[in-house]
Design a binder for these strands. Structure first.
Length: 272
DNA sequence: ACATCTACCTGGAGGC
DNA sequence: TGCCTCCAGGTAGATG
């Protein structure tokens, strides 16, 4: 379940093995991801040097001289570094083969991920152009959320999961951040005060940062791993803890349904 | 402009 | 053992 911390952990794990390497081939075993993988991707990228690896929201950007490979892990995608001769499994759809003898292999059982090509400024790509604020950037704060939410009647949880408002917050961290901020997930976004948004912004940043730190601790096994390295085991406060005692007040955690997603919350700690 | 729902896909869990 | 149903996850795109 790649959310921002998993994507960032992946980026950091790939970085030392891919930066300044050149691409000698891209093997496409199955182009049918969320959008078709460009059939000429190997020709577009062959013999080019990887000049950078960055992240925008949950998108990974592999920068080359003539353009950018845009990668999204969807809901089940992972990237690993392997010897390029390693036999591929059923869901190993793409290999980016490097001159070092290693390859970056995309595994994505559910194929909701994406591998795309962008010439020119990748941030102007339609998928990236209208994305919201980066929660870990310096200019992220409660005021931004406060301003963007005025006049909005939808639930605060929907709002913070909307990538056009703020990027990188999926179901897990939306639940966790709202718990940490003491905000009920069903509260109308437009009715939340400025101070509460300040607290929520801190909670979002803190939750994501802690997850990145936890993920970083398993990075040493990134090469040749089974794809689980880089994914952290976090002790959740509310996520998937329905019926279990709140870690703060012992009250049973409740669950409900919002936009076809399960929401977990503490009825005592999270006020409307 | 905003709110809500659907579609995409597979593997795992639980019920029978 | 097998079949069936449900659920998880991210988000663009359609519809209201």
């Amino acid at each position: 379940m790649p959310e921002l911390p998993e994507v960032e952990t992946t980026r950091r794990g790939l970085l030392p093995h891919s930066l300044h390497q050149s691409i000698i081939d891209i093997v496409i075993r199955n182009p049918r991801l969320r959008w078709p993988v460009p059939g000429n991707l190997a020709e577009l990228t062959r013999n080019q040097t990887i000049t950078g690896l960055s992240r925008r929201g949950k998108y990974l950007l592999m920068h080359l001289d003539s353009g950018t490979i845009i990668i999204h892990l969807g809901m089940s995608g992972s990237l690993r570094i392997l010897d390029s001769g390693t036999p591929a499994g059923v869901h190993d759809h793409i290999d980016i083969v490097l001159n070092s003898g290693l390859c970056i292999r995309l595994r994505d059982p559910r194929r909701f991920g994406a591998v795309l090509w962008s010439e020119g400024d990748p941030y102007k790509h339609p998928l990236l152009a209208s994305l919201g604020v980066e929660p870990l950037s310096d200019d992220f704060n409660g005021d931004i959320l406060y301003r963007k939410s005025r006049g909005r009647s939808s639930a605060i949880k929907s709002l913070i999961m909307d990538s056009h408002m703020i990027v990188g917050v999926g179901n897990i961290y939306a639940n966790e951040a709202l718990f940490q901020a003491g905000i009920h997930p069903e509260l109308a976004a437009g009715k939340i005060s400025r101070p509460r948004y300040a607290r929520l912004a801190l909670a979002i940043r803190d939750t994501l940062n802690k997850a990145i730190i936890a993920g970083g601790s398993s990075l040493r096994d990134f090469v040749g791993s089974d794809g689980n390295a880089g994914y952290f085991q976090q002790q959740y406060f509310v996520y998937s803890r329905s019926g279990m005692p709140c870690r703060n007040c012992d009250q049973p955690i409740k669950q409900l349904r919002q936009n076809q997603r399960t929401t977990f919350y503490c009825p005592l700690c999270q006020k409307k």
